[in-house]
Amino acid sequence: MSTKFAQAAENRHDFALIAKWIQPRSKVLDLGCGDGALLGYLRDKLEIKAYGVENDDANLLDCISNGISVIQMDLEAGLAGFDSLSFDYVILSQTLQAMVNTEGVLREMLRVGKQGIITFPNFGYWRHRIQLMAGHMPVSDRLPHQWYNTPNLHLCTIDDFESLCDKMGIRITDRIVINEGTTVGFMPNLLGSLAIYRFEQAWPITY
């Protein structure tokens, strides 16, 4: 099983980057965990206690086949069923842009987790901007759908996301922006296609 998840990670450069932020043997919740590949990779590499949340029947079945502990529930309804601060990390990988309740899920991530880790496609990526300037909605590797069939509702740029965090009192502790597997340091909002953040609540909240 371990080789299977390691193979999946070869095509997902964000997996190894996320792994760098996670303490070995910590407790991790992955929201919208798909087939459980990220959790399986982290579990094999870091011996974490891994749980996934998934609402899609086919994905849920894949998780169970992959031996990943997975809870079937709708993220939009919040994370009732998970105690406050019961996880070290709550991950939301390439799912934020498809959520109806964007602020709600961010709040729930930081209620349940001590830290949040999020990845999303950067709408400000230059290829997206060029397509818009040419008069079309962007379609790319990161945004593969047409405007009429995309599941994405709330696309944002790196700058937009950081403004929202600021407004919500979320402190960003780390940021990595990548493009085609390479880290982008210069003008990330223009040159990066995928953003990866680690963040936490800026001030303590009592639940």
Binding site: K49, I71, G81, S86
Partner: peptide
């Protein structure tokens, strides 16, 4: 069933939960 799942999660036990349509 979710009450059971919650209690299992609180104890950090390995649990999967399926809500079958």
């Amino acid at each position: 069933s979710k009450e059971i799942v919650k209690a299992l999660l609180d104890n950090e036990l390995s649990v999967s939960y399926a809500e079958v349509t």
